[in-house]
Design a protein around this nucleic acid. Structure first.
Lengths: 192, 192
DNA sequence: CACGATACGGAACTATCATTCCGTTTGTCA
DNA sequence: TGACAAACGGAATGATAGTTCCGTATCGTG
């Protein structure tokens, strides 16, 4: 079953603890500064040395990928909950999108990643994205059957709209309101 | 009328020529590489030395601002032409947005700038943006009077949607289709 | 045509960060 | 508790890229 990697010995207690501290610290720092955040800052905020950060994540990119991966995991969780939620299908879908937008509203790095600034960070998140796509497809289809989402909406339209909303969130030069952008986006999904 | 700056002597012929070469070269390089383009590349592609680039533009940022400013100028031109164009007001507006999207479809740096990645680059483009906003407002209002654009669409909704479409254009990790995004965006403007 | 001012080129300088290295510390297990 | 492997910290390294400097070349004018 596992032909490529040898089994790795369990992490020492302090290492396990530090790994989580680093991820938490990194989330804070990358949320504030985006992809240009510095590894030294991550180390400092996490309360460890840079060397320790690099012991756990071989590169800055690997660290960012882990943050993005966890974000997609949260997305999946929101979406999966919605599968069994009551309510009109369009509203359920809208709720998922709104919830997932809120999740990343304060995180500049994740916004940038979702906008596709650098494809590298996406590598290593295939499983999560696939599952998210699956569920989103199901949610859209239900709403289409109910007649509340346009029949021509495809699987890629949802992430595409999310990508646009991320740009709005991250816009530093003008105070656009991403809630408004989401509202318009949802209106464009709605069947007439 | 001019209380702040002293009159500058006219540029020497070679300097004037080089200035245009630099802007053209910079457009190519920044279009391909986005904001992370390098000044040495700009110099090389423009056929001058780095020193010359810096003689004309004190910083990389100033050079990018000039490119963005010219882009806004083109936008204004497209939009101004539309003011006297025949046709149903919604279609006229749609045409402007489509045309302006096409203008920047191949320019990574401008896409990034319009997405608001770095507010600094916007400084020095106030006049152009103001005029563009003015004209866009007029075009929207006409369509609203004609009943083909939702009455609640405000002046900032248009640039916000453009911002989102730029994100789609620049997405390196997934091949989203910005024409589709524009189409959805226009649908969200349309009165029902 | 000569000469002063303007402009040019590109090597050198500098700052910024990601990443590495190694001496020290700390967990784990017998 | 003693020993050894695992993990740590942070100074040092190296690479990248913006910017400056100054000797040289070119333009425009008298």
């Amino acid at each position: 079953m596992d032909t490529t990697a040898e089994t790795k010995p369990p992490l020492r207690a302090d290492a396990r603890r530090n790994r989580e501290k680093i991820i938490e610290g990194a989330r804070k720092v990358f949320a504030r500064s985006g992809a240009s955040a510095q590894m030294e800052d991550v180390a400092h905020v996490s309360g460890v040395g840079v060397g320790t950060v690099y012991r756990h994540f071989p590169t800055k990119e690997a660290l960012m990928t882990e943050l993005v991966r966890r974000t997609f995991e949260s997305f999946v969780e929101t979406a999966r909950d919605a599968l069994t939620a009551p309510g009109e299908p369009f509203e359920v879908l809208a709720g998922v999108l709104h919830g997932n937008c809120e999740l990343i509203a304060g995180d500049a790095a994740v916004q940038q990643a979702l906008m596709g600034a650098g494809a590298e960070v996406w590598e290593g998140t295939e499983r999560e994205r696939a599952e998210l796509g699956q569920i989103a497809h199901e949610l859209v289809e239900r709403a289409q059957c109910a007649g509340t989402v346009r029949p021509d909406i495809g699987p890629d339209d949802i992430p595409m709209l999310m990508c646009g909303i991320c740009a709005t969130m991250g816009h530093t030069a003008k105070p656009f309101d991403w809630h408004r952008h989401l509202e318009l986006g949802l209106d464009s999904l709605r069947a007439r």
